[in-house]
Lab assay of single mutants.
Amino acid sequence: MAEQVALSRTQVCGILREELFQGDAFHQSDTHIFIIMGASGDLAKKKIYPTIWWLFRDGLLPENTFIVGYARSRLTVADIRKQSEPFFKATPEEKLKLEDFFARNSYVAGQYDDAASYQRLNSHMNALHLGSQANRLFYLALPPTVYEAVTKNIHESCMSQIGWNRIIVEKPFGRDLQSSDRLSNHISSLFREDQIYRIDHYLGKEMVQNLMVLRFANRIFGPIWNRDNIACVILTFKEPFGTEGRGGYFDEFGIIRDVMQNHLLQMLCLVAMEKPASTNSDDVRDEKVKVLKCISEVQANNVVLGQYVGNPDGEGEATKGYLDDPTVPRGSTTATFAAVVLYVENERWDGVPFILRCGKALNERKAEVRLQFHDVAGDIFHQQCKRNELVIRVQPNEAVYTKMMTKKPGMFFNPEESELDLTYGNRYKNVKLPDAYERLILDVFCGSQMHFVRSDELREAWRIFTPLLHQIELEKPKPIPYIYGSRGPTEADELMKRVGFQYEGTYKWVNP
């Protein structure tokens, strides 16, 4: 592979701008107003304001973009700056750019259920340069409990009458099928589907988006991507930290609602779906819905739930269990780990287990898709061969690698495990991989909904998990304890083995 010439960040961002501006969906010269509902909250200060700053800094926003914060707290732009700027990672050389960014910011205080507050917000936006005809993007960085009041008031008082209007809704989209349907029906009564952007930030990850290209742009994968060759698929999300004093919020939802029903299920769809007619948003989402419709409700015998306990040999936070978090209700049975087996009941995947695993306070930070292939028929190497695996590593250190057998150097035919490896950090030294939120917010500006969740996708996802969630809430089974920093409950490994996964433990990928 030829040595790549190092590029400056300015040059890299210039390439990104060229890609972005050559499309006809990006209205570079139009006025846009980006409204952050819930501007005083954690999500706004840690993710949304920093993301908008990065896009502005790199010249990736339309030229005439204004940012308006809205929340109940009586704040000023200076207050917003004070709480969000520490997350910007701005350099001293960017000081003038930073001043320009905050000059485009404003803030309006108001209630979430008060019509007069929204009329005041609308008047404020109209007073901005060309504000009355601007395109408006409303980001709901809010708890779902206020979605209905907020969307109703936005629709009645704050819509642009000339430009387009788009609304970005953060997960969780309800707690179960019934609450999700209620919320979807409410929002759909106010906005068209092409105006609604239900954001799952995992769909903005580079390697998640790469799944489609790997599958449908490489001839070698087509013939082997089926039940005849693939023994099982494992989708993993692991965090090495616990709730760390923020367990009160987590306890309301648990690990299945927080990660599995959305992030992991979306990745499953991209692995299992048929080739779409095109890369058009609805063509892709149509195929994802077909996959979900082929999955039956989760069966309790295919589920393992766990909850982390303190590690007596650990240090600091590792010595504390979930129930030691003062914000967690006493005696909570909320799971911090889950392993679930699903089956896609169609011709391509009949009988292939899709194993979804996620948890907190585990032994490493990792998100990946792992396809394990069947054993080689007619073994001539005296059971020395391990199964081939194709691994798409989402985070950290984005990579695609194939675990395969090669001859060990020497005189004899002794096979050993090795890999074919594409590590993004080595291959793409001159490429700026956008943060997931950067990519998705740019998608909203461009009107691309491919990486957002459609209402029928959402409904099918909740259909699969709601009976299990209701059973857990009714019966309150005690989750299996696992030690902070471990791989999780051993019962999860036993479940995976029972459905056909072979864990060798003899080879570990190392970032080159």
Rank of each mutant, 00 (worst) to 15 (best):
F216A: 04
F221D: 00
F102S: 01
R74Q: 14
E239T: 04
Q111G: 10
G242K: 02
T31V: 14
G41H: 06
V208Q: 00
R227F: 07
T145V: 06
Q28L: 09
R74L: 14
I220N: 00
Y49W: 09
N229G: 06
F253M: 05
A141N: 04
G131F: 09
Q28K: 14
W54E: 09
K205M: 03
P92N: 15
C232D: 00
P172L: 04
Y70V: 14
H186E: 12
E99R: 11
P50F: 00
W225E: 00
V146K: 10
V77Y: 08
T51P: 00
L43F: 01
L203K: 00
E156H: 14
T76D: 13
P223Q: 10
M125W: 00
S132H: 15
G242C: 03
G163L: 05
D251W: 01
Q119K: 12
E193R: 00
Q28D: 09
F102C: 06
I36Y: 03
F87A: 08
P223K: 08
H155Q: 11
I199H: 04
L7K: 15
D79F: 06
V213L: 13
F26N: 11
L177T: 11
R227S: 12
A116D: 15
D42R: 00
S180P: 03
S117T: 09
V12P: 15
P240V: 08
L7P: 14
G163D: 07
R120T: 15
Q28H: 09
Q161K: 15
P240R: 07
F253T: 04
P62F: 04
I36G: 02
I168G: 07
A71S: 11
L128C: 09
L190N: 09
K47T: 02
F221H: 08
R219K: 08
S123T: 13
A141M: 03
A109V: 12
M159E: 15
F173E: 04
F26V: 14
E93P: 09
I48P: 04
A134L: 08
G247F: 06
L183P: 04
R136T: 11
M125T: 14
E85T: 12
I220F: 12
L203W: 00
D181V: 06
S157L: 10
H201T: 05
K152S: 14
R104F: 07
I196N: 00
S84R: 03
S29K: 15
A109W: 15
D114G: 14
S160E: 14
I199P: 00
H124F: 14
Y49P: 01
L61G: 03
R227T: 09
N165S: 14
H129Y: 14
N210A: 09
V68H: 01
T243F: 00
K152N: 14
H201R: 04
G222K: 10
Y112H: 00
P172Q: 02
V150K: 00
E239V: 01
F216S: 04
G248Y: 04
L43T: 02
L75C: 13
V77E: 12
G174C: 01
N210R: 04
R72Y: 02
N122S: 11
K45Q: 10
D79I: 06
G23F: 13
A115W: 14
I80H: 06
L190F: 08
I167K: 00
K152W: 09
I224T: 11
A90E: 05
G110H: 00
A141I: 03
I230H: 04
G254Y: 01
I220T: 05
K171C: 02
S160R: 08
M212S: 01
F138S: 00
K171T: 03
A78Q: 13
S179T: 12
E239N: 00
T236N: 07
F216Y: 05
Y118T: 08
W54F: 06
S84E: 08
S123F: 14
T31Q: 09
L75T: 09
E18H: 12
D194R: 10
E19W: 07
S180F: 05
H201W: 01
E156F: 11
A71P: 03
N185V: 08
G69M: 05
L60A: 06
D42I: 00
P50C: 06
Q119E: 14
T51L: 02
A116P: 13
S189P: 09
